[in-house]
Amino acid sequence: MTVLINIPDTAAPGEIVEIKILIQHPMETGFRTGLDGTLVPRDIIESLACLYLGEEVFRADLYPAITANPFLGFHLRADTTGDVEFIWTDNAGVTSREVRTLTVS
């Protein structure tokens, strides 16, 4: 699974920055049948959270109707230099994690 995260390298204190994340994921609904007529098992991301300086700043719950390769965008206020952490969990309970550093100066 490839993940593309768009976050500015630097920001001024107090600046509102836009964060964009695109996750490679099939988001298989669990409602479709395969060529042999059996149900294709559900495989979706159920939740995604973003932590900035260890504090949760964004959370989204995802459902079967959300497209493959989900794209999420949100804003946060830059405070001090620190890690922006992305954590998402699929319906099998597997958790993935990506970290980017936001430099505030």
Partner: peptide
């Protein structure tokens, strides 16, 4: 630049 097609190019 974050077009989903990017995954295939990468």
């Amino acid at each position: 630049p974050m077009n989903p097609g990017t995954f295939w190019v990468l």
